[in-house]
């Protein structure tokens, strides 16, 4: 579903942030990208839906090349959902309008169809009845669940998560992770998740991709990675993360 081949990215000639990154996500697979800060995880994620450009290599989503100049990027982005660390709900729109905006303007659904989808999805993430509220009236966990619903409203073929729980207070992390677990197990959604939540990774991820300093240092199935990481940097990272 997502094919990343030998991607290189420079911010300027002296700063290379992605070095020869190659990996893939099969349909229905859940892949977690982890690693220390500054390793380029979020950057790589943002390259997948073209939010960040890259200079070398190629990325294909469901057969469509992201870096091809002829690609209709907005149409591609409509098919790939993205959830941000800081939720990024539109503060001037109600929850329902947040969900309906792109449905109506990009997918050209009618208002009724959009509202129906929104209502259904809000119920799914446990926020039925919150349609008329504004984002500022919601807690962080609630906002993030709305953000997930907003991405799902576009019927994406894959979902990208950029540290979805890093900005949440500890007691709200579970409610968001539960939604993500449900998405992975019940809907079989193709997911590429950047996160520090190793519990989630162990429970749901099919594969782990470990990045450090712009490179993909190790990739393994979830079980293998946690049981016996092969590279030293991965071992160090895991020992620090899992210490508490």
């Amino acid at each position: 579903m997502i094919e990343i081949q030998h991607v290189d990215k420079w911010y300027n000639p002296s700063l290379q942030v992605l070095k020869d990154c190659t990996t893939s996500v099969a349909k229905g697979e859940v892949v977690v990208i982890c690693g220390p800060s500054g390793s380029g995880k979020s950057t790589l994620l943002k390259c997948v839906n073209g939010l960040e450009p890259f200079q070398r290599g190629s990325i294909a989503v469901d057969g469509t090349l992201v870096n091809d100049r002829k690609t209709d990027l907005p149409r591609l982005r409509a098919r790939v959902g993205m959830v941000f660390q800081h939720f990024e709900l539109f503060p001037h729109l109600t929850v329902q309008d947040n969900l309906c905006l792109a449905q109506q303007k990009v997918l050209r659904r009618s208002r009724d169809a959009a509202v129906e989808t929104s209502t259904r999805l809000l119920g799914r993430v446990g926020l039925g009845g919150y349609g008329e509220k504004f984002p500022s009236e919601l807690s962080g966990g609630q906002q993030q669940r709305v953000a997930i619903a907003r991405a799902l409203a576009m019927n994406p073929v894959a979902m990208l998560f950029d540290e979805p729980t890093s900005a949440l207070d500890p007691e709200m992390i579970k409610e968001v992770l539960d939604v993500m677990v449900q998405l992975a197990n019940e809907d079989g959604m193709t997911m590429l998740v950047v996160t520090h939540e190793m519990g989630f990774a162990r429970q749901v991820a099919d594969r782990i991709v470990f990045m450090d300093q712009g490179q993909i240092v190790e990739q393994a199935s979830s079980g293998e990675f946690f049981a016996s990481p092969r590279s030293q940097r991965a071992q160090e990272f895991l020992s620090k993360i899992l210490a508490h």
């Binding site: 943002k46 839906n49 939010l51 907005p74 149409r75 591609l76 982005r77 409509a78 098919r79 790939v80 959902g81 993205m82 941000f84 800081h86 990024e88 709900l89 539109f90 905006l101 792109a102 303007k105 990009v106 953000a147 907003r150 991405a151 576009m154």
Partner: peptide
């Protein structure tokens, strides 16, 4: 992030 979120949704 607001612009990024809008772009990610596919808005031109």
């Amino acid at each position: 992030g607001q612009r990024a979120a809008a772009t990610a949704l596919g808005l031109a």
